[in-house]
């Protein structure tokens, strides 16, 4: 494998990681502040993608579609938080897992009922089409570069929000001591609804961004959801910094694993078998990584006990 290809694959891994981060950020934020495991996060991702596809189909404007994805996911987030989720904060994780699992069933089939059984069309905007030549002669998709930039911007924005603003201060206070912040007169239920809506909007945005280069279909949220869980567990649940580190680690491991392992195996096995075995191992690699991290750091890389 040439150096150029290797660098390109590292870039791909980085880009995959950033895509995962967009999804994982909301998940880890919601867990950090409210202590809630939200399996339905993948459904909000799907809602974002469907809203974007519907609006893009109607208006032809990608920016409008992105805004629609943010708004739609946030609105659904608020509705779900106020009707269901807020009853779960005091429950144990088991109840949260089951209730949000039930939400997945409802959201998926309701989406299919509304939009039909066939995948929807969502394309990247004309201005972001095509490739650019990076230093070193690497030809890289402009849209993927944009995703990397948006992801990093979101990471920076979240960092500023949490460390520099008043809302952020309350969020941090809520993470540390839920009882105390209520006692200080902060309307905790409004804060929780806001945080949940923010997490939902992030999921919706990433659904729309990713939907433009993937398939907008029912059930698109669940595979990403599991990956996002792997990411936040590796990073330490509740830590935005951890989510970013975990996402990039997972993105790199997965991308490099699936390109390098078959090559590695073909050095001592015959062609077809090496590809099969190498790919089989590669598909398990991130779970092995996660198990490995947890065995040595049971609360993830940046998690606190």
């Amino acid at each position: 494998m040439s150096t150029i290809l290797l660098i390109e694959q590292i870039l791909n891994g980085l880009q995959f990681g950033v895509m995962l981060f967009l999804m994982a950020a909301g998940l880890t934020l919601i867990f950090g502040v409210m202590g809630l495991i939200n399996l339905a996060h993948g459904s909000l991702y799907m809602i974002g993608a469907f809203a974007a596809a519907a609006v893009a189909g109607w208006s032809g404007n990608f920016l409008l579609a992105l805004i629609a994805s943010l708004i739609a996911a946030a609105i659904f987030g608020v509705i779900v938080e106020m009707t269901v989720i807020r009853r779960l904060y005091k429950r144990d994780h088991l109840d949260q897992v089951l209730a949000t699992f039930a939400l997945i069933l409802i959201f998926s089939e309701a989406t299919r009922w509304t939009f039909g059984s066939f995948p929807l069309f969502l394309d990247i905007p004309a201005v972001l089409k095509g490739t650019v030549i990076l230093p070193g002669g690497i030809e890289y998709s402009l849209y993927r570069l944009t995703i990397i930039l948006i992801g990093l911007a979101v990471a920076l924005g979240l960092y500023l929000l949490i460390s520099k603003t008043r809302v952020g201060m309350r969020i941090r206070a809520g993470e540390n001591d839920r009882e105390m912040i209520g006692a200080l007169g902060v309307d905790i239920s409004v804060l929780y609804t806001m945080v949940f809506a923010l997490g939902a909007a992030l999921a919706g945005l990433s659904g729309a961004l990713v939907g433009a280069i993937q398939s907008v279909e029912v059930g698109m949220g669940e595979p990403v959801l599991i990956l996002a869980f792997v990411v936040i567990v590796i990073g330490g649940i509740g830590s935005i910094r951890g989510a970013l580190a975990g996402a990039i680690l997972v993105g790199l491991t997965d991308t490099l694993g699936r390109t390098l392992l078959p090559v590695l195996f073909s050095s001592f096995m015959d062609g077809s078998a090496a590809t099969t075995v190498g790919s089989a191992l590669a598909s398990m690699l991130i779970y092995i990584l996660m198990a490995g991290v947890l065995i040595f750091k049971p609360t993830g890389l940046f998690g606190s006990a």
Binding site: F101, L103, L105, I106
Partner: peptide
């Protein structure tokens, strides 16, 4: 949808 609602 019904199954989900009942579980919920």
């Amino acid at each position: 949808i019904y199954l989900g609602a009942i579980l919920l």
